[in-house]
Design a protein around this nucleic acid. Structure first.
Length: 412
RNA sequence: GCAGGGAUGACGGAGCGGUCAAUCGUAUCUGACUGUAAAUCAGACGGCCUUGUGCCUACGGGGGUUCAAAUCCCUCUCCCUGCA
């Protein structure tokens, strides 16, 4: 994998560039499409492509449980297996340390809104499905309850079997509101794991070389929650090592983006790509991410929300299931050029949802994924022609005009 | 005609003297969703308001027993099942 930078935007950390992988080039900034279980839910690869998707990100934990990495390897790797010949990423399973561990059955409440720093909340819940130690993580499979151990080494081995172009180091994502001491401990562990990942990764790449197979790339994952000193230490530590790029994890809200990315991306080596893990459910995430130096995003929200009837428009998000759309025979968005908006009405998509038809998921996923991918593409073009700030201003203002959710971050 | 069984909120269907404006499911309405345990989850769902251990109207119609009835009795209407 190679990365080259083409343009920079003066006064910001933003840049355009190209990630060159054995399966093609990703022009950055770019939105990477979520394909957790070797499928972008409700979409065929052709549809993903038609929506502008240039790369997908699958998940090591999920593919380990089902169908198992040996099957994917046997198929010729992730891309072959799922009929996707473009670039691929795998996440390491690090997020599941959090979502099946601390956050299990607690969700986002654990990480964002209780400003009191409720440390007791961040303590392990009894029923959680993941337990962390220095060695690695023991997961209780959500499919059949089997105990599964994942270590930095095994995550690498599994990822090499899955054989995506770009891998993530196995990290521990701790709850942002956990006590400082715990966050420090988790960060040290993440760093130690990163070293182990890198070592095992290099060994495995050596084996590929002797078999004349493609080399695979590895990103480290920067953590440190909302603490400047931890973020900076993480960027410094990981930035000094021989990774191909960096994931930035543990960011949960757009409000955190400017500070966290500023701390992190000012330190990370400039010539390596940066991926903001899991952020991108709203335009603000994307604009801020790029402004503060992000090259690629991934986020499951566009497709998940699509399946649940929550759909993007340039004037904000709507719930297509609302009864007011029953007889609305216009497209979801007048200006959108996606397949869904070109050919279907709100009333029809509304009906598909009410009737519980699977096409509802497909049409709305096409639209939502197109929306975010196209938004990042527009941002990229705006960096090239210098119109970034104007685009950000007009896009954000319009999108949130009717929202009761304040844009504190943007207006600050 | 005789003998049984039944009629409950938009629908299905619990409840069978007080804790019942009535379990539950569906439908309906609304909200949430950010490295996917998610085609999931949550709330509302008789009316009114001064939102309260508040007031009305309600479990086919009418009448009764009781301090108290969706729940017991009588009667009417309609439905189902046997036997003539």
């Amino acid at each position: 994998m190679q990365f080259k930078i083409n343009h920079r935007l003066e006064g910001t950390l933003a840049r355009t560039g190209e990630i060159i992988t054995p399966h093609g080039v990703i022009k950055t900034p770019a939105f990477i499409v979520g394909g957790t279980k070797a499928t972008v839910k409700a979409l065929t690869p052709e549809q993903v492509e038609s929506v502008g998707g240039r790369a997908i990100l699958a998940n090591t934990y999920h593919l380990l449980l089902q169908p198992g990495p040996e099957i994917i390897n046997h198929a010729g790797g992730l891309g072959k297996f799922m009929h996707w010949d473009k670039p691929t990423f795998t996440d390491s399973g690090g997020f599941q340390v959090f979502s099946l561990g601390m956050a299990y059955k607690k969700g986002i409440d654990l990480v964002s809104h209780s400003s009191k720093g409720d440390a007791s909340q961040a303590k392990a819940s009894k029923s959680q499905l993941a337990k962390v130690s220095d060695k690695g993580v023991v997961f209780k499979s959500h499919l059949n309850g089997a105990m599964i151990e994942m270590t930095p080494e095994s995550s690498m081995e599994i990822q090499h079997q899955i054989a995506a172009d770009i891998h993530m180091a196995f990290d521990e994502l701790a709850a942002p509101l956990a006590e400082y001491d715990y966050l420090k401990q988790a960060l040290d562990r993440t760093h130690a794991w990163a070293l182990r990942c890198l070592k095992r990764h290099q060994e495995l790449n050596q084996e590929h070389k002797t078999k004349h197979e493609d080399e695979q790339a590895l990103y480290a994952v920067v953590q440190g929650a909302r603490h400047q000193e931890l973020r900076e230490a993480s960027a410094k530590f990981l930035g000094a090592m021989d990774f191909d790029g960096f994931g930035i994890g543990g960011v949960f809200e757009p409000g955190e983006i400017p500070s966290v990315l500023n701390w992190t991306n000012s330190i990370l080596p400039e010539h390596k790509p940066r991926h903001l893990l899991g952020m991108g459910s709203q335009p603000l995430d994307l604009f801020l991410g790029v402004e503060y130096g992000i090259d690629t995003f991934d986020c499951v929200a566009p497709t998940r929300q699509a399946r649940n009837g929550s759909i993007y428009t340039y004037d904000g998000r709507i719930n297509i299931k609302n009864s007011k759309y029953k007889t609305d025979f216009g497209p979801i968005d007048q200006e959108c050029t996606c397949y869904t908006c070109q050919n279907y009405t709100k009333a029809y998509v509304h009906h598909l949802f009410k009737a519980d038809e699977i096409l509802a998921s497909t049409l709305s996923s096409i639209h939502n994924e197109y929306f975010v991918v196209a938004t990042v593409d527009k941002i990229r073009h705006s960096l090239e022609d210098g119109s970034f700030h104007d685009l950000k201003q007009s896009f954000i203002q319009r999108y949130y005009a009717n929202s009761d959710k304040p844009l504190k971050i943007f207006k600050q």
